[in-house]
Every structure is written in structure tokens, then in C-alpha cells.
Design a protein around this nucleic acid. Structure first.
Lengths: 181, 181
DNA sequence: CAATCCTTTCAGATGCTTCTGAAAGGATAG
DNA sequence: CTATCCTTTCAGAAGCATCTGAAAGGATTG
């Protein structure tokens, strides 16, 4: 067994990346595969991944498919070799864009849509109301409004960040610093 | 059964908030309890929550405890009533601060710490290396550097956002807009 | 077209998280 | 001190997401 510092770092990083995955809504193995591809300096095939991560062929196959679908990995062919190889997206900004789009789609959009529906229902409901019940509905509506305002802010921030991108980040941080005394 | 639009909106919102919870690393029931408290205009007791959400007493108790620990809910006592009541934090910015702190603690800090360790291991490893293997280590190190730079940016952005808070968000957005031609 | 090599699929197994409900704990009232 | 009321705890049950491995699919080769 390889006990070099290189090998130790590899498995340390892969394991941690996998552990984090749970909170990112990505399965542990999918994240480990992605980590391994990310730190490799050459494309890897299914067997490489099975060996290093100790998981089944089916598992690797399914998770690779999802990584490719997301755009976090892509297929690579070598002349004279039937096997398929894979590499990871290597630009962390592109990764950020992909992951944040995915997360927004799952975490932000559904709740925004629901809040919209609720708001119009409550607007309707308010028409004929007086007194305590009116106050109840109004409070509910107020909270939904606050939440929606906040969520659309978060949304635009992400959009901006992605647009601004790597190159201008230094400037952005400097400018933002002014707001935070 | 109450079929008013108010009641429909309530359960719609609660259900959706709960569904989202999975991706936020919060259990469905914990999120539903939080949602119900968030949209109520008065403190609720354990039985209220059990009735409306159809979950067991133990479940409510454990999740309330966690909500209180996080600071997303707090206990309220009524004179002459032995029961404990609960209200949710109602300021979405405070909620954001709490949740983002928690998520960073679980999602960002561990990987940053791991990257640090890996980087120093690789630095050590590089000392006596030449050729292909050196190139392999160098690529790994480069990717870790990129990742770390990115993560610390995200970190400072969150810090800034929390500090800047509600009041100045408009300004921040306007300024960011300039960078996004 | 048969053999070989590799990938994909999916039913059932596994393991992890969350939930239940009953028992124990603890406070207040009489 | 005992009864009452409410909360907390936790072992086992249930539910859910992930993984395995074998079988089927599909492509290339000789």
C-alpha cells in the first residue's frame, strides 16, 4: 500500500469532499468520484474509480452519468481503447455556477413559487375579512412578503456573482468592504 | 375541516418549507415546525404542533429543542399556564445569519481545514521530486489552491452580507451591478 | 456472426436517519 | 405528600436513500 504524503492527501481530500456532500444534496459516492477526477492529472476509467473508492461498478456508472448530466464531468475517448475515460470540470468558477444553479433550482425556486401562490390566495381571502381573523391573515402575508423579498435578493446576488466571475473578484471584494465597517 | 384559503395557504407553505428542508440539512419535521411557528401570529404549544402536523409528541419535543438551540425559536411562558409555548425568529435576516453560520460551519470550514492540511503535506512531498510524479503533485496542489481561494471568497462574502444587513442591501446590489457589465 | 470487452440497468439488500409511543423525569397545585 | 400536568428521553420500528451484483444491452473486433 502506498503511504506517501501524496497518497495520504488524496484520500484525505476525497473523504472530506464526500462527507460534505450530504449537506450539498449530492450523494457521498458521487462527490468522491468527482473529487478523485478533480485532483487527477489524467482521465480515469470506471475500473480506476472502483479500485480507488472501493465501490461497485453499477454505483460508479450511475454516479458518473449524473456528473456528466450536471456538467461536472465529461467523457474522454482514447484512440485504440474501448474504455471510456472521464475528467472533471477543473475551473472552480464553472463548478460554482453549475452547483449553485442546481441548488437554486431545488432550494429556492420551489419555495418562491409556493410563496407566490400563497400570496395571491391570501389576497383573495382578505377581501371579506374584518377583525382578528383579518389581522391573522395580514401577519401571515407580511411574513411571506419579507421572505420573498429576501429570496429574490439572494437570487440576484448569485446571478451577479456568476456574471462577475473570477476575474473581477478582487475588485468586488474591495468595493464591498466599504459597506461593512 | 377548514377549507378556507387561509388554511390552504398555511398547509401549502408548511409542506413546501418542509420539502426544501432536506437540501438545507434540516429534517422535514423540524422545518415544518419552524414554518408553522413562523406564520403564526401567536405562540404555539406542543399539542398545537402535534395536531396540525400530525406527528408524535417526542418528535415535536426533540425538534423544538434543536430549533431553540439554533436560535430559530424561543420559549414563551403564559402566566397561569403550565404549558410552554414557542415562537419563531421572525426577522428573515436574523434567520439568514443563523442558517448561514450553521451551514458554513458544516459545509465550508471542514473542507478548508482539510485543504490546508493537504497543502502542507504536498509541499513537503514536493521537496525531493522530479519529473512526472512532480507534475502530478503540482497539478493536485494547483487545484487545491484554486479551491481554497474560491472558498475563502465565499466565506468573506457571507460575512459581509451578514454585517451589511438589510438596510444597505440595495446599495450593495447597485455596486455589484457595475461589475457585471 | 460469434467472441470479446465494456457499460448500463434495476430488484433486492443494506445502512442511515427520522419517528413513535410508552416510560421516566420534573415541576406545580392541592 | 400525592395527584396532576407537562416535558423529555430513548429503544425499537419505520421509512428513505444508496449500493451491490448479476443479467442484459450494445459496440467493436477478428
Amino acid at each position: 500500500m502506498d503511504t506517501s504524503l501524496l497518497s495520504q492527501s488524496r484520500s484525505l481530500f476525497i473523504r472530506r469532499w464526500g462527507e460534505m456532500a450530504a449537506s450539498w444534496g449530492i450523494s457521498r459516492t458521487m462527490a468522491e468520484i468527482h473529487a478523485l477526477l478533480f485532483i487527477s492529472n489524467q482521465p480515469l476509467c470506471t475500473d480506476d474509480l472502483m479500485d480507488e473508492l472501493q465501490v461497485s461498478r453499477g454505483n460508479v456508472s450511475m454516479n458518473l452519468r449524473q456528473l456528466v448530466t450536471w456538467g461536472l464531468a465529461e467523457r474522454v475517448h482514447h484512440r485504440g481503447d474501448r474504455k471510456e475515460y472521464f475528467v472533471a470540470e477543473s475551473d472552480v468558477w464553472a463548478m460554482f455556477e453549475i452547483i449553485s444553479r442546481e441548488r437554486r433550482r431545488r432550494e429556492i425556486e420551489p419555495i418562491v413559487e409556493t410563496i407566490d401562490r400563497c400570496r395571491s390566495m391570501l389576497k383573495e381571502e382578505l377581501k371579506g375579512l374584518k377583525g382578528d381573523r383579518r389581522r391573522e391573515v395580514e401577519q401571515f402575508r407580511q411574513r411571506l412578503d419579507d421572505m420573498q423579498e429576501f429570496l429574490s435578493l439572494v437570487n440576484s446576488l448569485f446571478n451577479l456573482l456568476v456574471k462577475v466571475g473570477k476575474s473581477k473578484v478582487g475588485d468586488v471584494m474591495k468595493t464591498l468592504g466599504r459597506f461593512a465597517h
